[in-house]
């Protein structure tokens, strides 16, 4: 098995910083009544809870890989997007806003992890990061779908299970807009290195 190389450290640290920020944002969204509370649509509430659990696993895996590569584990949030979150959170007024903010972060996280898979040197770490990229992509797909349904104003469509006969056909495909997952929004490998 190939161990992670020192050159992988900044890649892993930046990924960790994005995971820290995304995880913290989900936790804060969960505290909102329309995010994780009683008035939240069930799919939104379930997504937030699942995201927190999955991102905690990502944090653990990335920290282990960073240590294996001889680096210092990054526990601070991404410096590029943390101010964006701080500015956006007070403006979150409903589930649509919560979904929109989460989508912004998940897209950057997923694109960064996909880009990292190509750059990382150790195959086992590539596999681990690819798994977390797929998990972020799953959340992005659901967020895209929920965003479309919430924007339609027909909140009854955001239900578990959904009423398949009532859903618009576009809800079946809006969650996977690209044939290949894009990477143009990927954060550069040095963005989240410890300062």
């Amino acid at each position: 098995m190939t161990a992670p190389a020192p050159a992988d450290v900044p890649i892993l640290q930046t990924a960790s910083s994005l995971v820290e920020l995304t995880l913290d944002t989900y936790v804060r969204l969960q505290r909102l009544a329309f995010g994780g509370g009683a008035s939240a649509p069930a799919p939104v509430r379930e997504l937030l809870a699942a995201a927190v659990a999955a991102l905690e696993r990502a944090r653990t895996d990335l920290a282990e890989a960073t240590r294996d590569a001889g680096g210092r584990v990054q526990t601070d949030p991404d410096p590029e997007y943390a101010p964006v979150v701080e500015q956006a959170l007070p403006t979150v007024r409903g589930p649509g806003d919560a979904v929109g903010l989460a989508l912004t972060l998940e897209d950057v996280l997923a694109q960064t992890l996909v880009s990292d898979v190509v750059e990382l040197s150790a195959p086992p770490v590539r596999t681990t990061v690819a798994g977390h990229a797929a998990a972020a992509a799953r959340r992005k797909a659901l967020l895209l779908t929920l965003q479309t349904l919430l924007a339609s104003g027909r909140t009854e469509l955001v239900a578990v299970p959904p009423d398949l006969l009532a859903l618009p056909p576009g809800a079946g495909t809006v969650g996977f807009p690209d044939v290949l997952f894009p990477t143009e929004k990927a954060s550069p490998p040095t963005e989240g290195t410890p300062r």
């Binding site: 190509v118 690819a130 797929a134 799953r138 959340r139 797909a141 969650g175 996977f176 290949l180 997952f181």
Partner: peptide, 13 residues
Amino acid sequence: AGVGPVVAMHGAT
């Protein structure tokens, strides 16, 4: 790397 997440999105949907 580009295919896997897209297929995961199919699964999520």
